[in-house]
Write a protein that binds this DNA or RNA. Structure first.
Lengths: 346, 346
DNA sequence: TTTAAAGGATAAAACGTTTTACCAATATGT
DNA sequence: ACATATTGGTAAAACGTTTTATCCTTTAAA
């Protein structure tokens, strides 16, 4: 069996209380000599407090749960990396929960995490999180009295901390970039329409084209699901329509678009410009590196972790929400508009 | 505060013992009527056992730790996905530990996980794990009495369960594929030489060229670090030498090779054939999809999890080790040897 | 000399469970 | 009528900590 505090106390001929007091550096009147004896004995026996017992009595575990859709997705794994980094720095532990974009599991996992006594939750909703669904999670979290921070995706309800990008600005920047290259007919591959983050990007898009005096054309908007297939499906849908550029609301769908275009014999960016969103790892190493809007994903993960820990420890919080700024990364998938290049079905 | 078993007992006017017995379905002589009362009350109060207390007394937490290098790497995130899936299926919980390929952290995390009372560890060593380093982890794990399963990377020591691919065969298959396409001068980008998995692939390579009566040429072997940069550096080193194909010991390095070749104006596969290893997600969606040796990563994760749980629960184990079979996935980055295509410095 | 304060350490309760051993009341067999 | 089973349930210990209140000495102050 592992060494317990009793073993240390016994070996040092001291009480359990003394050992605990010393090891936890509590203000007490224990002589220097005794203190040293405790440290020495603890080290000899390789004593490490059993965190189950500690958690039980302190009602704190220094453990947080991370709920996300799919860790295989580079966006989430980068996020997880940032979060884990920050946890390690602060001596916290991270439990990983993968919902596979199934909201029922969001709920299950919240319950599991509560019964494991995590101190808080970092929550990226699954993609089928409508407002109603979110409300369920929100209520549950509330009834369990669990501190939580939403990452990226959320809905506006009271008393909810969120860390995310300014997606309106992001959508605006992406669109501006294409407009400045001379594109006027810009297709959008959005995320699910009920999601705020997708709606925000679209708002940014509309703002930009309006400023450029271009009418909004519903037929250029394709609702995707943030997955690679949405990109290829979008191309099938869009082909034959008049457009010279595509703004995909995430990089994954942008890859799909590129693949789809290629399959139809169209070149990026010669025939069609494509801009993505997220700047995940792949985007840089593609044969035609993707122009995209960068989210500082790792940083956002760290920020969210810090915020959650602050909430848990009841430190004075600055802003309830943290909004990051998007950044335009120009690579090779966007080019100036060429009149001749209007796409046609092959 | 959360509902405790005492609250349930109080409300139902029963003892804590009775409630516990009923809820855990223990053989006991509690009347059907009482049982129903217990279930009803527990449900009403939304009772969920505090797993800290349960863990403390049962000396089981149904929690395992996963130690890996970098979750951003698609190989590991796919692995983590498989592992998490299996954990969820069986009602286990997963703690994620990211070592950033720093062996010191392997050690730290093993200690942390032990103090959190995980029941076992799934261990992917960091890349700087020499035999000595591994020995330290191994000894620590032993002294903590922690069941563990190594994934992919390990060293041959007694009493160690490992789940991995047959890398000798994998190396052999990759090389055979290139040989069959007519290539005779095949460069290798290996992993660190002290790692068994890299050495095994090289063994497979040597076996294949020997069978084809081709002499082993040390100058065609470049020792990489399994990262993308190793691939580009390898190209710099190799250029000017006589070779028509490259076998990169993982897909990441294969991408690096492709990028490097492209930077030097060489085409894949027209000028140089490239084969990778792993078959991670990217490989399929590249402009020139990568021919590679597939590791069933998700499956391996699940298998490792099952094995670990079996060990923890002392179920009869079949084989101590599980060796998966490699599979050749032919895509577009390899082509038949063309005499004219010998590379030259640009 | 008595009282108060300081110094050094500890006993015991508490956290929320599980589990073992036991108890009381009723029913059964002789 | 008595011993014995059976039925239905509970008290209390244990898990490994932290923390509060308390205790005994010794020293300082009155």
């Amino acid at each position: 069996m592992r060494t317990t505090i009793k073993d240390v106390a016994a070996k040092a001929n001291l009480s359990v209380t003394t050992v605990s007091l010393v090891l936890n550096n509590k203000p007490s009147k224990i002589s220097q000599k005794t203190k040293e004896l405790v440290f020495k004995t603890a080290k000899e026996l390789h004593y490490r407090p059993n965190q189950l017992a500690v958690g039980l009595i302190k009602k704190r575990t220094k453990t947080i749960g991370l709920i996300l859709s799919d860790i295989r997705n580079n966006f989430f794994s980068s996020l997880a990396k940032g979060i884990e980094d920050e946890c390690r720095r602060k001596g916290w532990t991270l439990i990983l929960c993968n919902t596979s974009d199934n909201h029922q599991r969001d709920i299950e996992y919240i319950n599991v995490l509560a019964s494991k006594s995590v101190d808080g939750i970092l929550y990226c909703m699954s993609i089928d999180s409508t407002l109603e669904n979110f409300q369920k999670s929100y209520d549950l979290l509330g009834s369990l009295n669990l501190p939580f921070v939403m990452i990226d995706r959320s809905y506006p309800v009271p008393n909810r901390a969120i860390v995310r990008l300014d997606h309106i600005k992001g959508g605006y920047m992406a669109t501006r970039h294409l407009l400045e290259l001379g594109h006027k007919r810009i297709a959008c591959i959005t995320g699910p329409n009920y999601l705020e983050d997708s709606r925000d990007r679209l708002t940014g898009y509309k703002k930009a084209i309006k400023e450029a005096d271009i009418a909004f054309d519903e037929s250029l908007i394709f609702e995707g699901g943030y997955d690679i297939n949405s990109g290829t499906r979008a191309v099938d849908d869009l082909l034959g329509k008049d457009f010279s550029a595509v703004f995909a609301f995430n990089d994954m769908m942008a890859y799909g678009v590129c693949m789809g275009l290629r399959a139809h014999g169209l070149q990026v960016p010669a025939d069609i410009s494509v801009i993505g969103y997220d700047d995940i790892f792949l985007s840089e190493i593609l044969e035609v590196p993707l122009t995209t809007i960068k989210q500082p994903i790792g940083l956002m993960g760290r920020a969210a972790t810090q915020k959650l820990i602050s909430i848990i420890e009841r430190e004075p919080l600055g802003e309830k929400n943290t909004i990051f700024e998007p950044e335009l990364i120009v690579r090779k998938s966007t080019a100036a508009y060429q009149k001749a290049a209007a796409p046609s079905r092959t």
